[in-house]
Structure formats: C-alpha cells, structure tokens
Amino acid sequence: MNMNEIIKITNLTKSFGNIIACSSITLEVYPGEIVGIVGESGSGKTTLLKCASGLYKPDSGEVFFRSDDNYVQNICNISEPDLRQLMRTDWSFIHQNPRDGLRMNISAGGNIGEKLMAIGNRHYGNIREAAAAWLEKVEIDSSRIDELPSNFSGGMQQRLQIARCLITEPKLIYMDEPTGGLDVSVQAKILDLIKKLVEELNIAAVIVTHDLGVVRLLADRVLVMKDGHIVEQGITDQVLDDPHHAYTQLLVSSIIQV
C-alpha cells in the first residue's frame, strides 16, 4: 500500500456502552502539518486521539500508519510488540493530565532520559546532558534534574511530560489539551517549540484543545467535533473567521476577548 499521509483513519467508530464517542470518522494527516481538533467536552476528541495512537481499539474502521521507510501498518490489528515499538519510536502522546504521561517514581532527568534509552542511546553522560538541555527548553531549571516529578507544580509536570515526549523527535505528536494547565507565559514558549519542531523535522502533530487562540496560532487546519461527528473542517482561519456550522459559530462567538 502506498500513501503520502503519515496517518490515515477511515470510518473509525468507537462506542462505550450505548454512547457513541466517535462515529465514522475519516481523517488524514500529512507530514509537516499541525491539525487542531476542537469541540465541547464529551464530543469524542480524546477518544479519536486515543484510537489514532493505539491506546484504544476502535469498534470498526482502520488506522493506517506510515513509518519512515514507507512501510504502512494498520495499527488496529498489528501485534502488541509491533505496536509498542511504534509507540516508542514513531509517535508520542502528550496527555491532558501529566501524571498519565510521566513516571512519578523516577527523577525528572530519568523521565526524559529513559525515552532516549528506549530508542537505543547508551552513553549516560550524553543522555543526562540531553535531558538537562530539554529541561531548559521547557523552562525548568536544570538544577532540578534529580528531583521527583511530584515535587513539581502541575504546570511544571506538564512541561516535563512535553520534554519527555519530544526528546526522541517522534514523527507524529498527539497532544490532548497540552497547554491547559500551563501559565500563559510558558504556554507561548511551548507553542513556539512545537511549531519549530514540526517545521524543522517535517513531522506532524494533532492537537486537541479547547483554546481557539492556541488553534489559531498553531494549527494549519482544524476539525470541529460534536457528538462524535466531525461537523466542520478546513484551514484554521477559514473555520474560525467564516464558520458554516451552527455549532462552530456558537463556539467562535463565545470567545471572551481580552
């Protein structure tokens, strides 16, 4: 199978009991682009992200992922070891709650460094140095490298998780409300970091967020979800400036101006 997309989701459906979280979702993501997903709580955004990243198994539909060597796999029916390998090397998932993405019982430096070890780095000094550099990139003082994440504030834990997810330079980054708990000043820095990384490495990112300001600055295009469906999609400024669906209009007109 030949494809240009890095990930291609077709007709994905996922229910929990009698609640349909995602209904026949089709979505393609190309290298070098950032795709935003917005919508109200419970609209299925996170479920879609988790199905796309192999954390949930969809009830039906396919999720094709293309590795660097153009090898395409359907991650809905590959073996557990193959899936783990992809999760380690090819994509990262930044969770809404940093505790879901961090190992709380190892140090900040260990949290970042173990990802490098997982992809084959062995030189302790280099790993520690890289971890310290990434702490500084997300604006955590590198002198705190040996502290446990539980010593950190919520916002710092989130930044630590982001460093852990980005250090291996994955080809695809999934982000579930990554900036929700961050103070505004740090948020800007993180957005710039993600944008640069996507441009320089020609990777892709999918970001779920409530914050339309974040979407506007970061995403090339955006999908609007409601009740498990994509109700509208397009280039970001088109969807935000000229929304066609009633729900998107409500969403956009409800922003409080500062």
Binding site: Y30, E33, V184, S185, A188, K189, L191, D192, K195, R216, L217, D220, R221, Q233, G234, I235
Partner: peptide, 26 residues
Amino acid sequence: NLQDLIRIRNHKMGYISQFLRVIPRV
C-alpha cells in the same frame, strides 16, 4: 484539497492585514 490550498498560501500568496498575529515571546 486543503493541503494544496495551504501550499498555495505558503508559497504563492502573501496576505498583509492591519493586525499583527504572532506567538507571544517570539
């Protein structure tokens, strides 16, 4: 399709509005 439109915008068309929109702190 959107990818082609994004490509045209990024490579062919400059749009200058009255307002500057940038990521803070850059």
